[in-house]
């Protein structure tokens, strides 16, 4: 995990430097009498760059003292797969419509993330889709994307 933390700290320092440059060059700092749009972003950029460097040094110092602790077992795949499904759902919602995309999303979730049996998957997906549709459309009167297949 420390490797990722170092990458994040380095990224933050570089982002801070870029924000400082962007605020100074594009947004303009103005003067102390009349600060412009880049004034606070510039200060935040300085803060972010310094904090990133401090974090990097702290990690280095901990590493030299051998206090890193046991490496954490990473289980990124389920959250990343879920995130990918959510992105696809966002795209499909506008393309295919609410009911179709929700049904596909529920089936994909139960099969890929939860690895449920097909019967249970279909039951949960159908009931879930209908319940959410009823909740949003009839109870909360929320507009949902129209169905592509119905027109």
């Amino acid at each position: 995990m420390k490797k990722y933390e170092r990458i994040v700290a380095l990224f933050l320092s570089l982002a801070g430097l870029w924000i400082m440059f962007y605020a100074w060059d594009t947004l303009k700092l103005g003067s102390i009498h009349m600060p412009d749009a880049g004034f606070l972003p510039f200060l935040c950029g300085i803060g972010l760059a310094i904090l990133g460097i401090v974090r990097l040094l702290t990690l280095q110092w901990t590493s030299l003292r051998g206090n890193e602790g046991p490496a954490e077992k990473r289980r990124w795949h389920r959250p990343l797969l879920s995130l990918a499904l959510m992105v696809l759902y966002g795209w499909a919602m506008e393309t295919a419509g609410y009911i179709t995309s929700t049904l596909i999303f529920m089936v994909a979730w139960q099969q890929i993330i939860e690895r449920e049996r097909w019967l249970k998957t279909m039951l949960i997906s159908l009931l879930g889709t209908l319940a959410m549709y009823a909740l949003f459309v009839y109870l909360l009167k929320v507009p949902v994307p129209p169905e592509f297949f119905i027109g």
Partner: peptide, 30 residues
């Protein structure tokens, strides 16, 4: 949790979409 999690995802996605009826907000949320 296998039922609770996707239901919350659906709830948030439609909830965010409904604020301005644009899918851009859904991507921002993600």
């Amino acid at each position: 949790y296998g039922i609770l999690a996707p239901v919350i995802v659906l709830f948030t996605t439609v909830g965010v979409y409904s604020t301005q009826n644009q899918v851009f907000d859904v991507y921002s949320m993600l």
